[in-house]
Design a binder for these strands. Structure first.
Lengths: 214, 214
DNA sequence: TAGATTGTTAATCGATTAACAATC
DNA sequence: TAGATTGTTAATCGATTAACAATC
């Protein structure tokens, strides 16, 4: 067991954002950036940026700043994006298809090995050359293919059952879009996108802003 | 100008979750719940739950607990869900359609008044009886219909332009699914769902868990 | 009334910011 | 070298938790 200090959730949420901004800088051909310059565009304090990076190592050079290319590569490594993942999508409604096309389009190392649904009319058809299979085959498929990540795009009623099959199939992480908090073993990573929660937070913010103007 | 203390982001993110759990309790026919019982199922400490609620008022009764029905209704009010919102969706790809069907299906006060796209083949067709219109009509439509919320489901290249039109059209909030941080006036609420950031956070968590087992 | 549980103040904890020595 | 900027320690701030008086 390693004794790395646990990385706070706050930092975990900022890391992909750093990556995103560094990607933009890289595309612009910018070669170096200081914590102060990055602070200007990303909105975190320079101090926080340096603290965040130094949680994982020393990526800068005193008097100079950070090399964009190097830092981008290092953050990719930190995020575990220096490898590929085998994924399956369960539930091929609009959301499932959106996610399927999304990961397909961006080709970023999350490869869709299989699509699963319970609708007999969908089973056997394909999306981006990947065939839609019956839900009953999910667990065996995950085992035989060595699937890393299960993406849940079914409704809240079916989501826990899907999660159970994915866990039984040996996935290491679940990306959940059903509006429910899944129960899974603590050695399986879980990331939920609760769209309704997000919309309700927006509703709250709109209300708060109106209240301020009174 | 009201002098309500600004509600922290941490609380804003917990509120929809309280609502969700209270909805489940309500469906189960449960009439009262104590902060301790709620703590058991939602995972926050009882102390935090009481603190959160008391940010907005006194909703409980000493010696008894909280009435599920009453608390649910009050949290709805706090979130601004005691009214309806007029929305438009810009970008009717799979994600836009997923969101359209989602809000349509749950019928929760976010009414889709219009759908917009730049693809001439889609313009004129309908989804759930709502016609897809040309992007060029967006601003005028928002003004004339009094649209409250704009939902951005276009790619990152077009997103800022869409946001500008929505703001010009007078929307009060933007729900953004493009993987970019939009620049909008500070009196317009912005909630972004960065799917790629979410997926990358999952990747990080998977990596961290593997590291722990070493 | 007695027991239970809230509302609220006080204490603790963790995250953010500031400061500055190290060093390129 | 001198100036700039990181890496890192110290100070501050805010959020969470604990404790308990109020009260139903």
């Amino acid at each position: 067991m390693s004794n790395k200090p646990k990385v706070s959730n706050a930092i975990i949420r900022r890391l992909p954002r750093y990556r995103r901004y560094l990607g933009v800088l890289q595309n612009k051909g910018i070669k170096k950036i200081s914590s102060n310059e990055l602070s200007e565009i990303i909105g975190y304090t320079a101090s926080q940026i340096r603290q965040d990076f130094n949680t994982f190592g020393e990526f800068g050079q005193q008097g100079y700043g950070y090399s964009v290319d190097y830092l981008y590569k290092e953050i990719n490594k930190i995020l575990g994006l220096d490898r590929e993942y085998k994924t399956v999508i369960v539930g091929v409604g609009h959301l499932g298809q959106a996610v399927a096309n999304y990961t397909y389009y961006y080709k970023i190392g999350f490869n869709i090995m299989g699509l699963f649904d319970i609708n007999p009319e969908k089973i056997g058809t394909t999306i981006n050359d990947v065939e839609i299979k019956a839900f009953s085959e999910l667990e065996d498929f995950c085992k035989s293919e060595g699937v890393d990540i299960g993406i849940i795009c079914v409704n809240s009623e079916g989501a826990q059952e899907v999660a159970d099959k994915l866990v039984a199939g040996g996935v290491k992480g679940i990306w959940n879009f059903a509006p429910i908090d899944l129960e899974i073993p603590k050695d399986v990573a879980l990331e939920s996108v609760h769209l309704s929660d997000s919309l309700h937070a927006l509703s709250f913010m709109i209300k708060s802003m109106n209240a301020e103007q009174e």
